[in-house]
Amino acid sequence: MSDDVTVRGLNIAYERAGSGPSVALAHGFVGDARSTWNSQIEALTDEFTVIAWDAPGAGGSSDPPEGFGMNDYADCFAALLRTLGVERSHLVGLSFGGALVLAAFHRHPELASSLSLVSGYAGWRGSLGAEDAEQRLTRSFHASRLPPDEFAATMAPSMFSPSAAGESVAAFIDSLKAVRPSGFRAMARASLDDQSHVLPEIDVPTLLLYADHDIRAPVAIGEAIHAAVGGSELVVLPGPGHVSPVEAPDDVTRELRRFLHSIEYTA
């Protein structure tokens, strides 16, 4: 069910479907809830209550105010869940969303039953280093000033493997043309924030799901996070690129379901 609610002064659009333990999905700095997580929303609702938001600046949600950082995104995400009556949830984030759920765990640890980072970062500074992170921010700002078609053509090749195809991939690429430049720049700025300090704090089950053709968050980033998070599980998917929930939806859903079962049905 698509809906919206006012959270921390912002209109936040979200999808909610299914019943059972809560699973909250956070998309990356392009796309939105449906273009990113459509397959997982449809598949997981047989066992879980799935909530997927449009982050401030994306989809049907308001643009954030100036200076809105990753801590603000994390607080807004947590406030949305609490507004919806969710006191505890499995938190799943793709790319930017991975850094977001790390920040949410740091600031609201009581909210997280588990963490799943899908092609995620400990922030760009935390996973790429300061110089590469600043270069990525500069490239993102440049891309944000392109016409919609050029923006999509610039971003799409780094989102998928060269062999990516199908309606879902095409729909995601098409969604890039609807990007809101100010919202995209806000998420890019927030992506810069270093979240590596959170990794040693993590004391909930953690899945790290990476893809072997990902050029934005290569497997080495997942390996570094795996080394820093005690008891975490690293899974590498063969074939897809960065936006694996779209390019390899069945594989991502399978691994998420297996991981969630290992928590919910062995506790």
Rank of each mutant, 00 (worst) to 15 (best):
A17L: 15
G183P: 00
E42W: 06
A33I: 03
R88M: 08
P157Y: 03
P205H: 08
V179N: 07
R216S: 14
L91E: 03
N11H: 13
L80N: 01
S119Y: 02
Y121L: 14
A122G: 06
H27R: 07
V5K: 10
A55L: 13
A74V: 12
L100M: 12
P218Q: 02
V7Q: 04
P205K: 02
V252K: 03
R258E: 12
D174Q: 10
T206R: 05
Y121P: 05
G123T: 03
G60Q: 04
A153R: 12
V219C: 11
E42Q: 08
D54N: 12
G57H: 01
T253R: 02
H197T: 11
S35F: 13
A33F: 07
V235C: 10
D214Y: 01
V243F: 06
G28C: 06
L10Y: 00
G31F: 01
N38K: 15
L207E: 10
A17G: 09
A112L: 01
S62T: 12
E87G: 15
L81G: 01
H213L: 13
I51P: 03
S168Q: 15
A156E: 09
A171N: 08
P109G: 05
I263V: 13
M155I: 15
F48S: 04
E87K: 09
A224P: 02
L208E: 00
G183Q: 09
S168C: 10
A99G: 14
D32S: 10
P238S: 15
D46C: 06
D75Q: 03
A170E: 15
R139C: 14
L192W: 02
R180Y: 01
S163G: 13
L137P: 09
P21C: 06
E247A: 00
Y210S: 05
I263Q: 06
G129M: 09
A33W: 02
P148H: 11
Q40I: 14
A224K: 11
I41G: 00
H242N: 11
A58M: 10
T138C: 11
P238W: 06
A103P: 07
V198Q: 03
M159I: 09
L80C: 02
T253C: 10
E110I: 03
S2K: 07
F151G: 09
P240Q: 08
T36E: 07
S168A: 15
V30Y: 00
G230F: 10
A165Q: 13
F77V: 04
D32R: 04
A104Y: 01
D149A: 15
S182C: 08
V118S: 01
G59Y: 00
V101C: 04
